[in-house]
């Protein structure tokens, strides 16, 4: 058990504890540990892994992602925008009569209704994913840990944050140790 080597930037300010970080050996260990953290009633915690672990959201007791709602909203907005643009051009802005063909030729509007729908959905997915995740965020207390660099390589971690109502520095640390965590670190914010 090593505590962090970092010191707070302002000496006058007392270091605020961000939370406790523990490492696990492999996906199976972190999966089972996540089930135990979930059963212990923690809410402000997370699992960190270099790739998504299949089924971890169930082990953590997470609800469904809300991204689908953002995507469907963007898709409808894009498609509606694309169609209305064409309708507006031909009905009001610049009615261009070609060979007596109808101006409001909705079958011919399909491609430019479809494409903006796709375009808006793609932006909605990427930006919505970042927004739901609170990213971009260039600073995070977890980045203070040297060991945490393994989280994007071959390390599996669980972090429990101090703002969780059940958090108690000593008890949480012991709890993480008891469910198989190693390299337990207390991180300051």
């Amino acid at each position: 058990m090593s505590s962090t080597a970092h010191t707070p930037t302002a000496a006058a300010r007392a270091p605020r504890v961000f939370g406790v970080l523990a490492e696990f050996k492999n996906p199976a260990d972190v999966y089972h540990a996540a089930e135990k953290v979930r059963d212990a009633g923690y809410k402000k915690w997370d699992v960190h892994s270099p790739f998504p672990i299949h089924g971890i959201e169930r082990a953590m007791g997470l609800g469904d992602s809300k991204l689908g709602w953002i995507a469907i909203f963007c898709a409808m907005a894009g498609a509606f925008g694309g169609f209305s643009l064409q309708f507006w051009i031909h009905r009001f802005a610049y009615p261009l009569l070609i060979g007596g063909k109808p101006l409001i030729a909705y079958p011919a509007y399909i491609p430019v209704t479809f494409e903006p729908g796709i375009l808006f959905t793609a932006f909605g997915c990427l930006l919505g994913m970042l927004a739901l995740n609170g990213l971009p965020r260039l600073y995070h207390a977890l980045f203070r840990s040297e060991n945490f660099k393994k989280a994007t390589d071959d390390g599996f971690f669980i972090s429990i944050e101090a703002r969780d109502p059940r958090f108690d520095l000593a008890a949480t640390r012991d709890f993480l140790s008891s469910i198989g965590g190693t390299h337990i670190e207390v991180l300051e914010d």
């Binding site: 672990i53 971890i56 953590m60 997470l62 992602s65 990213l135 971009p136 995070h140 980045f143």
Partner: peptide
């Protein structure tokens, strides 16, 4: 963008 491999992030 500050990616930290969090499971809550991976889910989204």
């Amino acid at each position: 963008l500050g990616w930290r491999g969090a499971a809550r992030h991976w889910q989204n």
